[in-house]
Design a protein around this nucleic acid. Structure first.
Lengths: 360, 360
DNA sequence: GCCTATTTCGAAAGCGCTTTCGGAATCAAG
DNA sequence: CTTGATTCCGAAAGCGCTTTCGAAATAGGC
């Protein structure tokens, strides 16, 4: 019919109306008569008119888009999160026809610049942050700029901004309690760098639970390592090789727990029997490890969707402090935990045990 | 100093130049003297001027953004791909300061609308597609619209567009050859719906290799199932339970292979000993399964980066047919494959070998 | 039927940039 | 000292929409 793409101008001409009137009719302004409003909207639909988002965004000053700052992947194993989160975010945003754009975490020294670029560029109306540090510079910058954002996780001072998190401190308390109830009294901790807030709070949970169970806080039982299976394997191996080795290993992450399982096996022991291993995340792949991994499972709720909805509410002017959600994790028992091991002879250290048999 | 955000207008005023001149100076137009160009660029840097992307995009008609159409996740296990791909794409795009936006796959009937929306909205300059079907409607639509795009994977007719793929047909030929060399003659195939092109071509490779090895094409040995561990478990179980069960299982995906391992174990057999299982993908988590999964590993090259670079080249006017890259997969032997199992009775095959010992 | 209050719309000014076009100034050449 | 070619910059239109403002038309009230 007409050439190329439909535009407001052409639509207006077609209707013998001014562009402004057509625009207001489409946007449901009250100063347009019911009659012409209908006429305009019908014509728009028939002619397949879709306002150019770029033009609208420029004119309104609303970016109609949100950025997700993707944490860089250390492990390449536990990344299902990203895809799921993006799916949920996309769902939430698509209801308004907003865009989801993805950027990457940058080295700490570039963070100020990257945040500034994000807030001043006008490309996005809000930001989703993942895996914050205890004192996350990005959070501070966003707050100072009074820019809408929400955090997946928390930092040390989380009172004044919006977040969605799982109470992993409590999860680690629960995990320790469980292990203690199985008779374990020397529980090793395979942790991650404590500039990550989640790493710190899981460590806190571990320590608190030890205390509450009347167990000594043996710092020789905690190892900090990188967020990968290899890291977990090294740290666990380290723990197992020492004098008075722990009978159970608590890992800050399922990915690390995979490494811990490997470390146990490679020392001729069987996870879940000679030494218990518990992870955190509830990754489905834990069903397929050797043996299947017991883990503190995060709730399956689609966090991306929730994050998206909350962020939109904040962009709409909501008070960030009203958008803070804490979920609970649950112990998911598979096969890598069990009662503390003892054979007849010695008390504390296994001397002989049958070889590892097939595990289903 | 001045209020709010720096704008072209303010910068021009500051320099006593016209906006047009400043703009051209910043964009290295040839009709600006060296002197003022320098002056402008220095002032811009000092005053922290950054052109408003939305305005520029509207004025130039260039979206400076690319969309990645994320396949919906079936498994939640094999999704590391997404994060890695996005990282690579982001790298490629960030060199130009372009944005990466993520949208989701939609049901087939909505595809025309979603593609049309994408190409006519002006929000993006190009599209990245993943996991195409054999006859992918989106590809056809994008071609008809003469819109720049690139496919991660291929469809049936892949001559006329750009793609990046792994030769998974060849990979399955190799896998079968390997299994045959281990003495297997009844090889089961755990496949995915063949509207996925990759599923079809892997099946083709499997069949071709059977033929080339003089093995019968027993259709009772192939199962098509969904792209998940559960699917793999069901299909593999099915195969194993039948009369003349296969001695080896080839799975179209590592995720399915996880299920296959489970099926084997749950029948009291040991994968890699009594029945061989081979997956495809080379997922790192395969190191941690029981036993570690032998798989056809995709090359580690950062495909996202390559896809991004190629797409940019096409947007710049390159001929899509010049951007087609085929990578090879390699057999990554871990512990789930082995010689065909026989007990003492039979003649032709290796009779005894040590049991699977502890795997590191 | 006159006056004021309401609806309903058009005109126009942006949003912040790019890009074409032409004019003034500068240069080299005759 | 002209003239034509260059170099360099300003003016202005435009990208496609939104939104304010005020004018015209209509309605309501006496």
């Amino acid at each position: 019919m007409t050439s190329k793409r439909m535009s407001l101008k052409k639509l207006a001409a077609h209707l013998s109306l001014s562009e402004g009137t057509v625009s207001r009719a489409l946007n449901d302004y009250p100063d347009i008569s019911q009659a012409t409003r209908q006429r305009v909207q019908i014509a728009a639909r028939e002619l397949g008119y879709r306002p150019n988002p770029l033009a609208r965004r420029l004119a309104t000053g609303i970016a109609e888009a949100v950025a997700y700052i993707m944490p860089q992947s250390h492990s390449s194993i536990s990344e299902p999160f990203v895809a799921q989160l993006l799916t949920g975010l996309g769902d939430a945003l698509s209801k308004r026809g907003w865009d989801l754009l993805v950027t990457q975490s940058v080295p700490a020294e570039e963070e100020p610049d990257m945040i500034r670029k994000l807030v001043t560029s006008g490309r996005v109306s809000g930001v989703v942050l993942s895996r914050p540090h205890k004192n996350d510079a990005r959070i501070k910058l966003l707050q100072e700029a009074r820019f809408p954002f929400i955090v997946h996780g928390r930092s040390l001072n989380s009172d004044s901004y919006a977040w969605f998190d799982v109470d992993s401190k409590q999860a680690f308390v629960d995990a320790v309690d469980h292990l203690v109830s199985l008779g374990h009294r020397r529980i090793g901790f395979v942790g991650a760098p404590t500039y990550y807030n989640f790493a710190q709070s899981r460590l806190d949970g571990y320590r608190q639970a030890l205390r509450m169970n009347g167990l000594p806080a043996d710092e020789g039982l905690v190892r900090i390592t990188e967020l990968s299976d290899d890291g977990g394997e090294r740290a666990a191996g380290d723990l197992l090789d020492q004098e008075n080795a722990p009978t159970a290993l608590l890992c800050v992450t399922d990915t690390q727990a995979l490494g811990a399982l490997a470390a146990v096996r490679s020392r001729g022991m069987q996870p879940g029997k000679h030494v218990s291993v518990i992870g955190y995340d509830g990754l489905r792949l834990g069903r397929h490890t050797n043996p299947p991994l017991t883990t503190m499972a995060q709730p399956q709720s689609h966090s991306g969707r929730e994050l998206g909805d909350m962020l939109l509410a904040i962009i709409d002017g909501g008070d960030p402090r009203n958008f803070q959600q804490l979920r609970m994790a649950e112990l998911l028992r598979r096969k890598s935990d069990g009662p503390v091991w003892t054979d007849g002879a010695t008390q504390n250290n296994p001397t002989n045990f049958e070889s590892v048999e097939e595990l289903t």
